[in-house]
């Protein structure tokens, strides 16, 4: 069904969805088509959170989201996180707390945390924040430093 499409606004820039098949996942459009490979491909089944991006500011699994389904939306990936005020705070917290090792889960964690802090605000209980990060798997850190980073970001914004 040929039709005009509204495209996506990715990290503040308009991107056309022309030529994107209807069944293409946002993950593949970002990585394969636009070479925004900072969004990571992990399990592709909603089990690891590595592909988390923000759609309209909210954490979303790009592996289980059709690009066509979110047309017209604003998408934020790790490449665009520096132009977001909360994003800068979270990135600094990850850096200072050493909350990464191999780095593969890191973009997903950063986006998830940015989204949660936006959704719930800095007054969110640490317990809630930690619980809501449980969809993002990290195999390297044991999450200790990630907890510290989440806490530091929360306090910096509070």
């Amino acid at each position: 069904m040929a039709r005009a499409r509204r495209g996506l606004e990715v990290n503040g820039h308009r991107r056309s969805l022309d030529g994107v098949p209807d069944d293409e996942r946002l993950l593949d459009t970002l990585r394969g088509r636009w070479r925004l490979t900072g969004t990571k491909e992990g399990c592709r089944s909603g089990g690891c959170g590595a592909c988390t991006v923000l759609v309209e500011g909210r954490p979303t699994l790009s592996c289980l989201t059709l690009s066509s389904e979110v047309e017209g939306s604003a998408v934020t990936t790790i490449e665009g996180i520096a132009s977001d005020a909360v994003g800068r705070v979270v990135r600094t917290a990850f850096e200072r707390e050493g909350a990464l090792q191999c780095g593969y889960c890191t973009p997903g964690f950063v986006l998830a945390l940015v989204g949660l802090l936006k959704e719930r605000g800095a007054r969110v209980a640490s317990e809630t924040l930690v619980e809501e990060l449980s969809g993002n798997l990290c195999r390297c850190t044991g999450y200790v430093s990630i907890r510290r980073a989440a806490e530091a970001a929360r306090e910096a914004l509070g």
Binding site: T52, V55, T60, L61, L64, A112, G115, L116, G135, N136
Partner: peptide, 9 residues
């Protein structure tokens, strides 16, 4: 149900 990012969809 799943994770926050899953519940977003």
């Amino acid at each position: 149900v799943g994770s926050v990012a899953l519940r977003e969809r």
